[in-house]
Design a protein around this nucleic acid. Structure first.
Lengths: 114, 114
DNA sequence: AGTTTCTACAACCATTTGGTTGTACGTTAC
DNA sequence: GTAACGTACAACCAAATGGTTGTAGAAACT
């Protein structure tokens, strides 16, 4: 699967920073399984509603989730496209690594011929 | 490719936190292409040697790079296995998403039958 | 031996982060 | 209409982050 990765440094910063917290990763996991209101999410964490609200904001600013109003609730929905972009960024490093290995293999092959 | 992901929350925190900085991502990219000493890395960034040294420490604490002594230099080497683990974590979210879609498809199929 | 180079590490500072409480406002329920 | 619920947001605080400078030690060069 090919994923577009035209993201600015600041956007990538926000994505990985958002992922660098266990509570936020759990929110992402839960909303990936099924959307949930902020208060429904908050009910299961040992912290204030406001704290969970801030975590959701961090995820939303990173584009990893979206919020849609439904009555007085705000439903939090995961955005798998953004998760895929983050994964694609890590893929790039692995491709770099592989191309480096390939170059080393080429060098070894040349040495073997000489 | 199957990748082991038996990482604690704190370890995952460190990995994504380390990735949440453009300078550190650039160091990771460069050391993935080929190993480099800390001072060689520092020479190309518009900040002090000590600052770059700290960035390398953050990457090393996350397991994304290793340092090996060579004379008075410390060669920084990327650790592709750890990068792969981070990628595998993001894969999990995408798998979750896909299984959710599959469940929705099943529900729609049931509705269609009724 | 003396100097330079590379690294380590401490101390310090400004800003950000992750949490709190309190207040206010729109929506739902009685 | 009023009470309860869900959310938004500001103000505040402790701790972590990302930078600096300075000092010191180990390795290499002359």
């Amino acid at each position: 699967m090919v994923v577009e990765t035209d993201l600015s440094d600041a956007e990538v910063d926000r994505i990985f920073r958002a992922l660098a917290d266990a509570t936020r990763r759990d929110i992402l996991r839960r909303t990936t399984e099924s959307e949930a209101s902020v208060s429904a999410l908050a009910a299961t964490y040992d912290m204030s509603f406001a704290a969970v609200q801030k975590h959701v904001t961090v995820l939303a600013d990173a584009g990893l989730v979206t919020k849609k109003a439904q009555g007085r609730e705000r439903l939090v929905c995961a955005n798998p496209a953004q998760i895929a972009r983050a994964r694609a960024l890590l893929d790039q490093y692995e491709r770099l690594w592989r191309s480096r290995i390939d170059r080393l293999d080429d060098l070894l092959a040349e040495d073997a011929q000489q």
